[in-house]
Design a protein around this nucleic acid. Structure first.
Lengths: 134, 134
DNA sequence: ATTGACTCCGTACTTAAGTACGGGGATAGA
DNA sequence: TCTATCCCCGTACTTAAGTACGGAGTCAAT
C-alpha cells in the first residue's frame, strides 16, 4: 500500500536522507507520527509532500525558519496572522523575482551575443543588478 | 575622494563585515589589491559593487561556488565557457522563477481570501508547488 | 611623539543545515 | 529459528558561510 511508509521509504520517495527527516522533526517542520507501542512509525504521502515542499522552498533561498512560516500558513491560521506572514513573504518573493528576472535577461543577452562567436565576451551582469539594488 | 576606500569604509558601503571581505578574498570572489609596501590596501567602487552583487545572488539561493560562476561571466570569458555557464544558470534561474511565481500566486490568493474575514484560513500552498515539482 | 583608531594576518570560534555512528530493538524472508 | 535489514534515538562529526580575536604594524590628529 502506498499510503503507509516507513521512514526509509519516505526518505527515498522524498529524495532525502533518513537523518534529514529526523532532523526536520526535531525542528518541528514535520510532525512525528505516534509510535505504535514498541514499534515503528508510519508515514503518509502528506509527509512526503511536505518534505519536497521544504526542499523547494530552500532552493528559492528561504532558510528553515522562513520555511516554518510558510508551513504555518499551510497548517491553517487566523486571518490576522495570515495577512501578516503572507504579506511579508509576498514582498520577499516579489523582490526575488525581480532580481532573478534581471539576471535572466542578462544571461539571455550574453548567450545570444556569444552564439557563433568565438572570441571573448564580457557582460555588465553586476551593473544591471545594481541598478535595482540601489 | 569616493574612489579610494580602506577595507573598513568599503565594508560600510557594501554593508558587510570587514571579515567577510577578507573571507571573500580568500575564496577568490574578490580580488585583493596590491599592498603598497608596508601599507594599507585601497579599494574602489568596483569592489563595493561586486560585494553587493554577491550578497544579492546569495539571497536568490546561489551558493558561493555558483556565485563564482556568475562572476566568471562578468570577468569576461571565452564563448564556449560563457555558453555553458550562462546556459546552465539560465535554466536554474527560470526554474526558480517558476517556483516563485507559484508561491506568489498562492500568497496573493491567501491574503485576498483573508481580507475582512476573521476566521481561520487554510491554503493549498504545498499542493500547488508540488504540481510543478512532480 | 604619542595616542587612538584602523589595518594586516593567522587562527579559532559560531551558526545553519545536515550526516554519520553505534547500540539496541523489530521484522520479514530463507 | 535465525539472520539480514531496517527502525529508534542520542551523540558527535561535517560543510558552508561567516565572525571573532589578538598581536603587530600604520596613519592621522593632537
Amino acid at each position: 500500500m502506498t499510503g503507509s511508509l516507513t521512514i526509509g521509504t519516505l526518505a527515498k520517495q522524498a529524495a532525502v536522507n533518513v537523518e534529514t527527516i529526523r532532523f526536520y522533526q526535531r525542528r518541528r517542520l514535520l510532525d512525528e507520527p505516534d509510535k505504535p507501542p514498541g514499534g515503528i512509525r508510519r508515514y503518509t504521502q502528506t509527509h512526503a509532500r511536505r518534505i519536497r515542499f521544504i526542499k523547494e522552498a530552500q532552493k528559492l533561498g528561504f532558510g528553515l525558519d522562513e520555511v516554518a512560516d510558510l508551513l504555518a500558513l499551510e497548517d491553517g491560521r487566523h486571518c490576522r496572522e495570515v495577512e501578516e506572514i503572507a504579506g511579508h513573504k509576498l514582498a520577499v518573493v516579489r523582490e526575488r523575482m525581480t532580481q532573478l528576472s534581471k539576471i535572466e535577461k542578462l544571461l539571455v543577452v550574453l548567450v545570444g551575443r556569444c552564439h557563433g562567436n568565438s572570441g571573448k565576451v564580457r557582460c555588465p551582469l553586476i551593473a544591471s543588478l545594481e541598478s535595482a539594488t540601489a
